[in-house]
């Protein structure tokens, strides 16, 4: 009886339905909690560009969300630097919800670029830093980040990087505070005002404190570093018009 085709098919159908219900049920149940976890993670990364990681880690989840609401205002701009409020279908765009990976597949001129403005509490015009989003490819998989510029729109105040699958201990070190701190105080425009980005160098252990556009590299992770360089260059270039427009006003 147990070997008959009918039994096998019935058994398989029941098993599939039971397991399917179990999984979709869990997914439904945990969905809202997962969404919150993702939101918290994004906001943490954005704040990471302007706050010391030790300070950020000491904060509780609710504190982070509250701090974010009080101190960050966000908008979305296009390649020309103009603010966009509605997408093609007329829906309102929220900067936090812009899917950078999806936009990355479009031509740079067609992407939406979120901007996060770190301001004094209660006064949105009193900006302290402008945070922009970055995205690119590392050695194995995608890498992303947030970069905070000082109000001169030239000096880097801080960066955070994230990655999906860089080699632990090598490329994955871009998430470490000690690596990210190397970008602090570097400049994205040279003295004559030309865009120059900041480049991570090959090899590690040299002192680049005198150079505004170079940071020390990652030993054994040159390809990840190249990915970071390309990501910075592409995205800062794309935000350039916005920086210029903001500078003028």
């Amino acid at each position: 009886m147990q070997q008959s085709n009918g039994y096998i098919i019935t058994f398989s159908v029941i098993l599939t339905v039971v397991l399917g219900l179990l999984l979709s049920g869990t997914s439904q149940l945990l969905g809202p909690i997962q969404k919150k976890a993702v939101e918290l993670d994004t906001k943490k990364q954005i704040l990471g560009a302007v706050l010391e990681s030790s300070k950020l880690n000491a904060m509780k989840s609710e504190e982070i969300l509250e701090f974010y609401d009080n101190r960050i205002s966000s908008k979305v701009v296009d390649y020309e630097g103009n603010e966009i409020e509605k997408d093609d279908d007329g829906n309102e765009i929220v900067a936090e919800n812009v899917d950078v990976a999806k936009n990355y597949k479009l031509a740079p001129e067609k992407r939406k670029y979120p901007v996060f403005i770190f301001h004094q509490e209660g006064n949105e015009d009193d900006a302290e830093a402008i945070i922009v989003q970055l995205y690119g490819a590392g050695l194995w998989d995608e890498i992303w980040g947030f970069l905070a510029l000082d109000t001169d729109l030239n000096t880097i105040e801080g960066v955070t990087f994230g990655h999906k699958g860089e080699t632990p201990g090598l490329g994955a070190r871009i998430t470490e505070g000690s690596v990210q701190n190397r970008y602090q105080g570097k400049k994205i425009f040279d003295d004559s005002g030309e865009f120059q980005s900041v480049e991570m160098q090959k090899g590690e252990g040299k002192d680049y404190s005198g150079d505004d556009h170079k940071v020390d590299g990652l030993s054994g992770a040159t390809i990840t570093a190249n990915g970071v360089n390309a990501m910075l260059e592409n995205y800062l270039k794309a935000y350039k018009s916005y920086f210029e427009k903001r500078q003028k006003s």
């Binding site: 098993l15 599939t16 397991l19 179990l22 999984l23 997914s27 945990l30 918290l40």
Partner: peptide
């Protein structure tokens, strides 16, 4: 295939739980 289906479901379950409660 039955064993595989059971194991795969359990693993997906673990992944979902981690995503909700230990996102890092």
């Amino acid at each position: 295939i039955v064993q595989l289906a059971v194991v795969a479901s359990l693993v997906t379950l673990v992944n979902e739980i981690l995503k909700a409660f230990a996102y890092d």
